[in-house]
């Protein structure tokens, strides 16, 4: 687990974002156990109080849940997961469009480029997985 922290952004929000990506990508499956507060603090080298705050916020929005004294788990609610994925996708595309628009290139010219790059990236990540 690795996370490059931006020292100008609140750490707890960076932790939440990190979990959202993990959950949306399926890296963290629904209902999967997440590391304890201290474990995560240790791996990410961040303040345990900050992790606590991130977990609390995630619990409030239903991203994770805790039963009794058990370790916290990723939500089983498909709706929630789908909503996260959509939101992340929306964000990424908005970002992409903002940067591309500044170059003043028409959409028709971009689409084939996207398809090509997307395929290349897929191949590359598969090769990496096979290593």
């Amino acid at each position: 687990m690795r996370l490059t922290l931006d020292s100008r952004a609140p750490v707890y929000i960076q932790v939440i974002e990190y979990f959202k990506v993990q959950i949306a990508s399926g890296e963290l499956e629904k209902g999967a156990e997440i590391p304890s507060r201290r474990e995560l603090a240790n791996t990410l080298k961040i303040n345990p109080n900050t992790v606590q705050r991130a977990y609390k916020e995630m619990e409030e929005v239903g991203l994770i849940f805790t039963e009794g004294n058990m370790p916290s788990k990723v939500t089983k609610d498909e709706e929630v997961i789908k909503a996260i994925k959509d939101a992340l996708l929306q964000d990424s595309i908005t970002n992409f469009i903002t940067s591309v628009q500044s170059l003043n290139v028409p959409l028709e010219a971009i689409i084939p480029l996207i398809e090509e790059k997307y395929k290349q990236a897929n191949v590359q990540s598969k090769e990496e997985d096979n290593d």
Partner: peptide, 26 residues
């Protein structure tokens, strides 16, 4: 700083280089 060793304790730490513990302090 991330271990159970300082759990629930109050810690005061001094430094002249913050980079080492930037994300560890309250």
């Amino acid at each position: 700083f991330t271990s159970h060793l300082i759990e629930n304790r109050g810690v005061i730490v001094t430094t002249h280089e913050i980079q080492d513990i930037e994300h560890l302090i309250d």
